[in-house]
Design a protein around this nucleic acid. Sequence first.
DNA 1: CGTTTTTGACCCGCGC
DNA 2: GCGCGGGTCAAAAACG
Length: 235
Amino acid sequence: MSSTSQAMLNQGLFEEQEMPTQMGFFTFPSNLSCPPLGLGCHQSLKAFNIAAAAPLAAEADASSAANLTETLLSSSTAQKHREDPASDFGGPQLLSLQRSSANFWAWGEVNECLASKKIGVDDHLAVSAMKMKRIKARRKVREPRFCFKTMSDVDVLDDGYKWRKYGQKVVKNTQHPRSYYRCTQDSCRVKKRVERLAEDPRMVITTYEGRHVHSPSHDLDDSQPSNSQLSNFFW
DNA sequence: CGTTTTTGACCCGCGC
DNA sequence: GCGCGGGTCAAAAACG
């Protein structure tokens, strides 16, 4: 990790920004077993310095972000993969990186609602309603997101964190269900979705939402504690 | 027996 | 206002 990207890391990677969804495509070595971008997979992170720096640059500077995205999307390899994912099977895996648009749903709305709520005829019901309102409102808060597209036989890639499945849904126009996972850590609200690409079932799309507030549950490389710290800048 | 997965129901946002 | 589709909940089942 270069000092530049490290500096960019310190600027707060993947904080929500007011910018449209961006999709960048990267290739990374096929021997990587998990997504490389700060997901607690230290080996991958180390092996993927350049790609890790890319979104950082995008975050740090809007204009360079545009240039970067343009560069990435126009690269022949990425383009080839985008147009025909099956065309280069066995070569470097394709990684797509998507960052969500800013989705700020203000807590103010909730607070306002709760503050103006008069104690009703049935206090118990009122409290329940308020709780429900709070829960529902919380759902609207969008965490920073991005997704990986990897070619893999297994759906759930080992990213160093422990996940609990909380739902599965059949998505329209796809024969493969989408699975929903939550980080098992109590205080951590990171979620991820795992699905297979309709056009090419060999491709697994993993979407991460939120940022881990803890270290990975198991370290792959204990000799490099700094990497553990590093990955927490991402998640 | 505690933890995780499954799965149908429910909720919500969005487009029409 | 209504229907559709995606996301979450929670009870039951499965697992270790």
